[in-house]
Amino acid sequence: MKHLTQAYRALANRHGLGAALFVAIAVTLWVVVFITLPQLSMLDYSFRFNLPADQIGTDADHYTLSNFHSFFFNADGSLNTLDLVILGRTLLAAAIVTLIDVLICYPIAYILAHGAKGVAARLMVIGLILPYWINEILRAFAFRVLFGATGVVNTVGMQMGLWDVPVDFIRADVALYFGLSYAYILLMIFPMYNAIEALDHTQVEAARDMGAPLWRVHWRVVLPIAKPGIVSGATMVFMLTAGALAAPQILGGPSNLWFTQVIYQWFNESSNWPRGSAYAVVLLLTCISFVLLMMRVFKVSVGEIGK
């Protein structure tokens, strides 16, 4: 609190009372009303029963663990494998997508930072950004077009005689994996690029000069520099993939649900908000713990994200 008032005074001295007041009000509003209160409210809701409007506030309206209980266990006491498996599979899939993105983005980030010059580098940057002007939904749609039963991949594959019955790429989640890997490439490349760009290229040349093979140069010289960028990018890609809703809805197979879809169902189809809130709390906590764990493992702080 002392630091906050000090910062406020510093702002007032430097930028004036008006500016300081504006900053204080806007940041408080943001932190309290927009960030904290909604999460607390959702947490509170997740411990409540799904009551009709006229019973809210009556004796029936008290806290319960039932929403969380029924996430873990079925009514008969056995494990609720259905939901647990969906959550597990969502996290696993998000991790796989993140890994794929790290692998395919690293070479491009490196080429962009140290290979491409002038016009080529400029074109590459524009080329990376352009696809992301197009709506997320349309990008997913493009993969529907590509992988649908009568899509380009099937038509071409069948015409070339590689297979003769249309392969259901949607059901096999191939389209989903492609779509998700595609969706957040930009968020992976730019943190990586920023990190790698800081590397003095002569270091790479020196290592090569000393006879190190290319893979070893990357392992020993480039990767340590790129690490914060990789972790930052990976965190964003993982969180966004695990929290994705549009791509699984559009590209996901009908039998393989994404955890966000389950939440969506509880809200929009079953109208059970408390249960949906409980599931959202579960998703939030799992994702955050997973990311914190990864940051611990790779020894990177949250402050690196977004840079």
Binding site: F34, M42, M236, L240, G243, L245, T260, C287, I288
Partner: peptide
């Protein structure tokens, strides 16, 4: 808020 799933 950038990292929290939009659904949440």
């Amino acid at each position: 808020p950038i990292l929290i799933p939009g659904v949440v």
